[in-house]
């Protein structure tokens, strides 16, 4: 039998992870993912230039064709553009994880004395930080092309907060796909149709009432619409509380389902 050369009390101590270490590992991984981002010009472009183009395109291309009662189209539009951007942007989480898996990095991380949670938490946190900048850039550009809110600055911040929370929730869905896919391309291919349907069959760019009945049923009862409705209420005014609660419930639900699934999957991937 094996002979224990290490004091059992020390083994017990080592098995116990300090909260400080867990947080530090997550921060280290966040730092690493953000550092990678700064080295990846295409992703930088994808993350910042594309949302700007979307704001401008929707503002000037569709803005002329679509009229919305009560508000300038750009005020209606911003909620859709924010949510659309972070929804497609969530792809990065899964692609990043699939790349780490492919590169064998996850294997190394699992042999290191680091907190196991750090890989997923660091990944999703880095994506949250990235989304923060994306949303900030888009909002600035939005203001430049005539966007205005009809509520309070606080409500606007609340709206942006909901957008960011939603992006964080979708990162966990993306993480699961990234951990299940054999490579980054597959993760991307699996994620894209899901979010495309969620974004385009939603209230993002046109009022749901303009859609055929069967599509309305879906469009009215899906998370992207719920989040957009809450964000619109917070920026345009009108009844707000119910919509915000409904958005938060969707967000919490997505995290509650996909975070544990991702963590379980992460434990099993090898």
């Amino acid at each position: 039998m094996t002979m224990t050369t290490v004091d059992p009390a020390q083994l017990a101590r080592e098995s116990h992870k300090h909260v400080g270490d867990v947080a530090r590992d997550a921060l280290t991984m966040t730092w690493r993912n953000l550092l990678r981002l700064t080295r990846n010009p295409e992703l930088m472009v994808f993350s910042t230039v594309q949302p700007i183009i979307f704001v401008l395109m929707f503002r000037y291309v569709f803005g002329g064709a679509i009229t919305i009662p009560d508000y300038p189209y750009v005020d209606f539009l911003m909620a859709g553009v924010w949510v659309q951007s972070v929804t497609f942007g969530a792809l990065n989480t899964g692609v990043g994880l699939a790349e780490d898996l492919q590169a064998g990095l996850i294997e190394r991380f699992r042999s290191l004395p680091m907190a196991r949670s750090a890989v997923l938490v660091g990944r999703t946190t880095a994506d949250l930080v990235r989304n923060f900048f994306v949303v900030a850039v888009m909002t600035t550009v939005g203001f430049m092309v005539g966007f205005n809110y009809h509520t309070s600055a606080l409500a606007l911040l609340g709206a942006l907060g909901i957008v960011l929370l939603f992006s964080y929730a979708l990162s966990w869905l993306s993480a699961l796909l990234g951990l299940m896919a054999p490579n980054a391309e597959t993760a991307q291919a699996a994620f894209f149709p899901i979010v495309a349907v969620l974004v385009f069959a939603s209230a993002a760019f046109v009022p749901v009432q303009t859609m055929p009945g069967w599509l309305q049923a879906f469009a009215k009862n899906q998370p992207v619409t719920a989040v957009i409705d809450a964000v619109r209420a917070l920026t345009l005014g009108g009844p707000t509380a119910g919509k915000v609660v409904s958005a938060l419930v969707w967000i919490a639900g997505i995290v509650a389902v996909f975070a544990p699934l991702s963590i379980r999957r992460y434990r099993k991937v090898a």
């Binding site: 690493r32 550092l35 990678r36 080295r39 990846n40 590169a103 064998g104 990095l105 294997e107 190394r108």
Partner: peptide
């Protein structure tokens, strides 16, 4: 297989 971060 070398497990290193290609980007860093």
């Amino acid at each position: 297989y070398a497990a290193v971060d290609e980007v860093l």
